[in-house]
Design a protein around this nucleic acid. Structure first.
Length: 288
DNA sequence: AAGAGGCCCTGATAGC
DNA sequence: TGCTATCAGGGCCTCT
């Protein structure tokens, strides 16, 4: 589900709700995630103060006291829910389970704070938590990931260099987290549409001005998506259970057989498959 | 060795 | 109604 903008929305809300708070209790209901939760997970987080919540790419980085870190990846279907109760002690209160937006199934992990419970839900179990004792181990985990689109390292020169002699299509490059990290299947289609570039084109054929457009439009689309609270296709929700709004602005994603939105273009949106993932494009606007 | 595809998993939806 | 098939926003791993 979540690409960089959706993870950023979650981060902002965690910052507001749990920064500076102490984890009173960790309750694991189901350890089966992409990586099985270690049995010592609860013990490692219990009574730790949350100093900050950062994000790199699609990863949340929860900074804990004593220079330890908890990485969270939401996979395809991971959501974080925050339930507040000012009157009752969350450690004993169970009435919050009746909150209308709170899912009943697949609540894997719960964190208890004073007056707040944080619940991690993940039906498809592609998400995971990982605990690290020091920042070096975190850096090591991320060492192969490419820069985020917002990073100044992600520029046309970088693109040209990377694309040399490569047969891989530009769409697959945008999905390759070791090349650029944070872009997923939705925003890849949107970026290439805005850049008027055919997703199937081998990246090595891209001209410098096209690379510049990809850089500019990647930033533009991701920024806009963050501003609109992310995109909700099926199950993305922010921590309060609200949907995002950027899906209303999609130009191509999910618009198979509908009219191209570009002014003066008579084309229709096509859905094609690249490396087993769907891509949406207008064959007329995106001839090359 | 780059790049495509399978696979992990559940749920929603479509078609019969 | 109830089956079966197909498809999902990610990314690791294997195979060619």
């Amino acid at each position: 589900m979540p690409e960089l903008p959706e993870v950023e929305i979650v981060r902002q809300s965690l910052l507001k709700n749990i920064k500076g708070k102490k984890i009173n209790k960790v309750l694991v209901r189901n350890r089966n995630l992409r990586f099985k939760l270690e049995t010592s997970f609860e013990k490692k987080l219990k009574n730790k103060l949350i100093l900050n919540i950062k994000r790199f790419s699609k990863y949340l980085i929860i900074e804990l006291e004593n220079k330890s870190f908890c990485i969270v990846h939401l996979g395809m279907s991971g959501t974080i829910h925050i339930v507040e109760n000012k009157k009752n002690n969350m450690l004993t209160n169970t009435s919050f389970y009746n909150s209308p937006n709170l899912p009943k199934k697949h609540n894997h992990v719960e964190f208890f704070f004073k007056n707040i419970r944080l619940i991690y839900n993940d039906p498809r179990r592609f998400g995971y938590f990982q605990f690290f004792d020091d920042f070096n181990s975190v850096k090591k985990k991320f060492k192969n990931l490419g820069p985020e689109p917002f990073n100044k390292k992600f520029n046309s020169k970088y693109l040209i260099n990377h694309f040399k002699k490569k047969n891989k299509s530009i769409k697959n490059f945008l999905l390759d987290q070791n090349f650029v990290s944070g872009i997923g299947n939705i925003y890849a289609s949107e970026i290439l549409y805005l850049s008027k570039i055919n997703p199937s084109l081998s990246a090595k054929y891209l001209k410098k001005y096209q690379c510049k457009n990809i850089v500019i439009n990647s930033r533009k689309i991701l920024h806009n998506a963050i501003r609109k609270g992310g995109s909700t296709i099926r199950d993305f929700k922010n921590t309060k259970g609200d949907q995002g709004n950027f899906q209303k602005e999609f130009k191509v994603y999910g618009r198979d057989k509908q009219n191209c939105k570009r002014f003066g273009c008579s084309g229709t949106i096509n859905k094609i498959t690249q490396s087993n993932r769907s891509t949406f494009l207008c064959e007329i606007c995106q001839k090359q």
